[in-house]
Design a protein around this nucleic acid. Structure first.
Lengths: 94, 94
DNA sequence: TGATTATATGAACGCATGCTCATATGTCAA
DNA sequence: TTGACATATGAGCATGCGTTCATATAATCA
């Protein structure tokens, strides 16, 4: 049985993936870096809602961003995110 | 971009993993099938709380059970669950 | 600098969710 | 069948969370 705190962290990680808006954001960035407004249009959500969720995704280190002029271009942090999504999707599609 | 409904299902799957009690249950069953009361003692939770969460884990097909006398012996449904947990843990520990 | 565009943030509201407590259901043993 | 044990379930409560709305911060361009 892993350490109590580790289990909390694990639950917290999965919690980040447990919201549809965040899942949509992650898929929007799956192979294309995008600005906040671009994400919002792509997934059909408010700029504010997207920004709030990006904050959570940033804290969990699932996304990163670079500045381009006045825009912030977000992308998936690393390949682990692809793997997590793919793993979950595999389980669903059985 | 995957189908809208698929994204909901994916979020729902992750949601099941996103609670500490359920994570503890899954780890308690990681390599040892256990009865409900055994689980409750192992993770330090109420029988009722465990039963409620087992219901959710069953619906998500993450656990299964066999009857042994008056006890129900729960175990992880398949190897996918191990993989999901391991994948998440790997991400945490980097 | 001032205006405009892009993003972030805070408060408030509504909804979902996990727990406890009490009780129901179900199974076995005598 | 009755009593005891094992698990499930329902109601009610408290907490957490995602959205919207309004506004703040930040950066670029004229």
């Amino acid at each position: 049985m892993p350490d109590e705190e580790l289990l909390y962290d694990l639950a917290d990680l999965f919690k980040v993936f447990s919201d549809t808006t965040r899942i949509k954001i992650l898929y929007a960035l799956f192979d294309t870096p995008r600005s906040v407004n671009d994400i919002a249009e792509t997934i059909g959500a408010t700029q504010s809602a997207v920004s709030h969720q990006l904050r959570i995704l940033k804290q969990a280190r699932l996304v990163r961003f670079d500045r381009d002029g006045r825009s912030l271009i977000y992308s998936l942090a690393d390949d682990h995110v692809h793997t997590m999504l793919a793993q979950g999707m595999t389980h669903i599609c059985e």
